[in-house]
């Protein structure tokens, strides 16, 4: 009683509605997301109410409170404040800090360079360490050694960054005294004058993402390695390292590329924690300090900048994946 395809009839072919080109759609998503982020960031601070009393302390006079509200535009209706804030961003005016009473940009700008260098360093570290280990353990390792890799990544992944950083600081900084446990030196002199101050925070941030990427790379490499075309390549006499690098890696890479883009989110937490732990004068430390001292304008500006980088990185990773994967390239058209 089994029916063949002919008896049932093919499902009616439904024409896909006309769609905008992929890149245009991605750009629209980008703008909508950024817009949503500005609303969330501003909305959260706005519904919290007037911070004047909390910032100035309970002994501030009414006149001081009123002056504070006027300087920061807190006496205006919320919609006006939002539009002014948004407009200011386009003019390069990020508002005035509650704590320093100077422009927010002056508080943030000296910290941009060190943080960018630190993030690029740790991101590079993540790629260089986790992709080869993941590929190798996925393709070559079996049994106990494979279990060992899995176990170590599980353990490292379960440690919060500040615990990992502390262990590194105690072993490499205090016991062996190879590296400085304090990175304040970065704020003095040029960006690259004290390279050793970048090492411990850089490794700490990278350790937060490395186990995750190793596991993903390993799982994908293993899946691809069992495909028929890989076995065909083996039969044709293709040997390592060409087998891993030319046949397995390109096919196992796409999800890893997406994840490396997504990992910017993981990096943000790592950057905040590692910079605070090692006294590194960057944006992450500023973000934590400003949140603790309730300096909303600084936190808003930093959150918007970092959020924008995160969204762009995600979409870039998405686009790269789509254009290197033939199956997806056709699917998104």
């Amino acid at each position: 009683m089994t029916q063949t395809v002919e008896q049932v009839g093919r499902p009616p072919v439904r024409r896909a509605p006309r769609r905008l080109p992929y890149l245009v759609r991605q750009l629209i998503t980008l703008l909508v997301t950024l817009f949503a982020i500005t609303i969330v960031i501003f909305g959260l601070t706005a519904i919290a109410g007037d911070p004047a009393r909390d910032i100035l302390g309970q002994y501030a006079t009414d006149a001081q409170v009123t002056a504070f509200q006027q300087i920061h535009g807190l006496d205006q209706p919320i919609v006006v404040r939002y539009l002014e804030w948004l407009g200011g961003i386009f003019r390069g005016d990020l508002g005035i800090s509650y704590q320093s009473n100077g422009p927010v940009w002056d508080v943030i700008s000296p910290r941009l360079g060190p943080s960018i260098v630190l993030v690029l360093f740790s991101w590079l570290l993540t790629v260089v360490i986790s992709v080869p280990i993941g590929l190798y353990s996925g393709v070559r390792l079996r049994g106990h050694r494979d279990a060992a890799v899995t176990f170590v990544t599980l353990i490292v992944a379960a440690f919060p960054e500040f615990v990992l950083g502390l262990i590194l600081a105690i072993v490499l900084g205090v016991w062996l005294a190879w590296l400085p446990v304090d990175s304040t030196a970065v704020s003095m002199g040029g960006l690259f004058d004290s390279p050793s101050a970048y090492v411990l925070p850089g490794i700490t941030i990278a350790l937060g993402t490395i186990p995750y990427i190793i596991r993903l790379m390993r799982a994908n490499a293993r899946e691809v390695a069992s495909e028929t075309y890989v076995r065909a390549a083996v039969l044709r006499g293709v040997t390592e390292p060409s087998l891993s690098l030319r046949h397995i890696l390109p096919n196992a890479a796409p999800p890893v590329v997406t994840a490396l883009g997504l990992q910017f989110a993981g990096l943000i937490g790592g950057v905040v924690v590692a910079e605070t732990l090692f006294g590194f004068p960057g944006m992450g430390q500023l973000l934590a300090q400003s949140a603790a001292s309730r300096d909303a304008p600084v936190v808003e500006a930093l959150a918007l900048m970092i959020g924008a980088v995160f969204v762009v990185a995600n979409l870039a990773a998405d686009a790269i994946v789509v254009y290197v994967t033939p199956k997806l390239r056709d699917a998104v058209r």
């Binding site: 997301t33 949503a36 982020i37 969330v40 960031i41 959260l44 601070t45 519904i47 919290a48 911070p51 910017f264 989110a265 943000i268 937490g269 905040v272 973000l287 934590a288 400003s290 949140a291 603790a292 309730r294 300096d295 909303a296 936190v299 808003e300 959150a303 970092i306 959020g307 995160f310 969204v311 995600n314």
Partner: peptide, 14 residues
């Protein structure tokens, strides 16, 4: 699309 750390830090600042 909004990183967890950012959202929580904004809430704490507010």
């Amino acid at each position: 699309a909004i990183p967890s750390y950012l959202a929580v830090l904004v809430v704490v600042a507010a």
